[in-house]
Amino acid sequence: MIPLFRKLHHVCVVVADLDKAVAYYESVGIGPWFDYPKGGAYVEYDVPNAQASAAMRYKCADLDNFQLQLCQPPELDSPQRRFLDESGEGVYHLGFESDDLGTAEEQAGALGLDVIARGRRADGSGFCYFDTRAGAGVTLEVRKTQH
């Protein structure tokens, strides 16, 4: 059995003002920041609001042991926008790397974890977010990086 949540890839913090947040992090020595690298087209894409998803603004910083992501959601309805409106800025999700996204999603289903968003590319890379906030305090994600 492949461990689902063992290899932390990133921590994603939802912020109200991406530029202001980046400036603050840089002021305390965290960076450099880069735009989230959009990968190739998805052959499967099931998200709550595709328009909102496309309008999300992200910046990333590769640290020694994981990637820090900042996300500014648009005003459009999305899980990230609802989180920001209801809870304020903070950690929205933890992203874990998986060698086999399909198997990871099957294992999560066997554990009773419901999918809230997912996307797959032809090469098997992609992401899957689970409805874990009530139990874990954050949304958990598994992903496979596109190479």
Rank of each mutant, 00 (worst) to 15 (best):
I2G: 02
P3V: 09
L4D: 06
K7L: 13
L8W: 14
L8M: 15
H9Y: 15
H10Y: 10
V15E: 00
D17V: 09
K20E: 13
K20T: 14
Y25N: 01
Y25G: 00
E26T: 11
V28Q: 01
G29N: 09
G31N: 06
G31Y: 07
P32E: 09
D35W: 01
Y36D: 04
Y36C: 03
G39Q: 04
G40D: 12
A41W: 02
A41Y: 08
P48L: 05
A52R: 08
A52V: 08
A52E: 07
S53Q: 06
A54E: 12
M56Y: 13
M56T: 09
Y58N: 13
D62N: 12
L63A: 08
N65V: 12
L68C: 10
L68R: 12
Q69L: 11
C71K: 07
P73D: 05
P73E: 02
E75A: 14
S78Y: 10
P79W: 03
P79R: 04
Q80M: 12
L84I: 08
D85L: 15
S87I: 05
G90W: 10
V91E: 01
Y92F: 15
F96Q: 06
S98M: 04
D99G: 14
L101D: 01
G102Q: 05
A104K: 01
E106W: 08
E106M: 10
Q107Y: 07
A108L: 09
A108S: 08
G109T: 05
A110S: 13
L111V: 03
L111K: 13
V115H: 07
R121A: 07
A122I: 13
G124D: 10
G124A: 10
C128K: 00
Y129F: 15
T132F: 04
T132W: 03
T132L: 02
R133L: 13
A136M: 15
A136R: 13
A136S: 14
G137L: 05
T139S: 02
L140D: 00
E141Y: 03
V142I: 15
R143W: 01
